[in-house]
Nucleic acid binder design. Structure first.
Lengths: 214, 214, 214, 214
DNA sequence: AATGAATGAGAATTCATTCAT
DNA sequence: AATGAATGAATTCTCATTCAT
């Protein structure tokens, strides 16, 4: 492995360790000593690869965002061509165990909790939010057209869709017993079923698979 | 003022100062010195009225929750008797400026961000979540009955409702320009409009007021 | 003792401890832990009374300067009225054991060594230097007039006087065996003896006392 | 270039880099990383050519001293044969721009400031001091004899001479605007003019050139 | 009840030094 | 010979907590 690649690997190693540590002990109790230990390295190492703790956190958030975007895009791209199928894939993706597991959700909320006072966090979160809103709005616009719906505003529906997912993540965080992955998906599909009965209506249990891929 | 009342007044004063400080500087930068200063008192005071910083935070969260519950209940109680009217009032309440202002939302997310590692926070948040879910589920159950709807699961719909509100708060936190109070309410009403067309349908702009209070 | 006076006393205590520590271990090995220990207090104390280590050093230098100025002024004021007597007192003062002891000289040179990169140090040293140059120039101007000398420039002579004293301090630092207090005074008086034979000439051993107070 | 010569060249390169770094950032902020960077080499290199940071500093001081001695000797040797001419050359030399420039003086004082706690520094400085005192004492002894002076102690005069130069360097460090090279030389010559009127007297501006080379 | 000086544990950060490559 | 990643001890600074007044 080249020296540069090795360096990048170490950085990723440290960012993953940071995520683990936040998940394990929380944001305000995060110490660089813990991170270094989790990465199996020495205390001085973090300040060698990252200018400061702040910088480590910023880059870790960026890492988290990139990861999320890539996985989601992959999952959507693998779905059928119809807007309904892709929305359905988006729902599955957002509650897939590699994305919405307790650790990840925990860390997302940890970052969101600090966002207000860290301009760099905010910027990254805004970018993600904007990117996804644009994406889902496009899907809903296509769905409305493909389904021949009238009087529906894709922007508003997309906002509700995104917000509901974030809110369900919070439920999974706070009430993991009441809200599991499948329950969460059912909730979202009920929302969409009201507005798009042909594509998402009437299936409480089996998902929208049949309709969506039809 | 009695001795106990004075004591309670001091405690409230300190909890409010805590909320202000969290809103101003963040959760992980919160110092008791700041809180004391914001309250116009001396550093030693916090450990006098609260056993520890942790305890102060726990009681502040409780204070926040109580405040939220009381205000929401008041707002719902003042609405009409129908489930639709009360749901409508709940929406208005949740995005009212005394509840969903930037400071409050900021602080909610600050606490939620830490919830995972503080069992006492978690417990309080769970209680709130459960209480409200029970409340909204009841409202939706009544709405379904009152409206003569079939095949709708009040539990699922209530979950989506609660989640969407929390998610919209996050939007207000991250994208205050894109998502303001009115936009947020429209989003929720669009959700309900899909499922309850008679009570919440067809009004994209004016709110559900007409239908709901009918 | 009032609270404010107590606070000031603590500050002085810490500055004196700083001087002791610099004298004992050097400038670049100075740690706040050492200072606190020398003052018989706990580690956190320095940052309680001084904003930072830098600030402690700056104020310590100022303290040192004030001390020096006050002592010197006192010593000069106690001498006779003639310029010669006062210059003689200045020489005695500058090599008096309370001013030019090894500890003090050590610390002066420690600060001078850092002066170049610490604008605040530089400013304080410049002020001292300017103040004293003005003072000695005035004395030499009077001496020239009182003695009826011609073609002597008080400014140049004063510069040489001040410089020689600083340089002799360095000798005392580096070669304490070759240059003691008395030797140093003799050196300065030899300088003055060349220029002011009536007041400082011909006495190699007894000092200028006789002539000066004549 | 032989292996040994190359090695020596690297060592000199690093010592010069050290001098530059001290001049640029100060003694207590000197890091080996800076030195290596200034020398255009890698961090590990210093500990390769010098056993430790301490050793590098000691050898750098030695380097500085050797440089000073060689230049001064050269400058004196090029002067006339008389003691007066050589003393005059010594004065010119000590304030020549290659010796008493701000960078060099800065670094000298940086070392002197640390001298007290570093026995090796002290030893080197003592040697230099002793060497030069012996040298100047010899010159003054010759001057006294050549000029037929009586009752003058060459040892005392030489001490004053050396000290005055060191002190004037301090002035150049602290008050570069008030004390420049020419002013400094005038100050020293005024000192000597008082004691040796025939060789250094009566020229306030033109230097002692005429008398000295006579 | 209230103050605020004092404590000391804990954290980020720096940097001389080592050593595998 | 030279590099630079990695180490870990040391240092400054912060801050919850205590306690004498």
């Amino acid at each position: 492995m080249s020296r540069d690649a090795l360096k990048e690997a170490r950085r990723v190693q440290l960012m993953e360790a940071t995520i683990d540590c936040i998940a394990a002990h929380g944001f305000s109790d995060l110490t660089l000593a813990d991170v270094a230990k989790a990465a199996g390295l020495s205390v001085g190492i973090v300040n060698f690869y990252f200018k400061s703790k702040d910088q480590l956190l910023i880059e870790t958030l960026r890492h988290l965002v990139d990861d999320y975007i890539q996985q989601t895009n992959d999952n959507i791209r693998n779905a059928g061509a119809s807007a309904a199928a892709q929305l359905d894939a988006a729902i599955d993706s957002d509650f897939h165990r590699t994305i919405a597991n307790r650790k990840r959700v925990t860390v997302w909320y940890a970052f969101w909790g600090e966002t207000r006072w860290r301009p760099e966090f905010l910027k990254i979160c805004q970018e993600l939010s904007d990117t996804f809103h644009a994406e889902t709005r496009k899907l809903f616009a296509r769905l409305i057209e493909e389904g021949g719906y009238r009087d529906l505003d894709p922007d508003i529906i997309a906002r509700g869709f995104d917000a509901m997912i974030d809110g369900l993540w919070l439920d999974m965080l706070i009430n993991p017993k009441s809200v599991d992955r499948d329950a969460a998906k059912r909730v979202v599909r009920t929302y969409l079923g009201g507005l798009f009965p042909n594509e998402f209506g009437r299936q409480r249990t089996g998902g929208a698979a049949t309709a969506a891929t039809a």
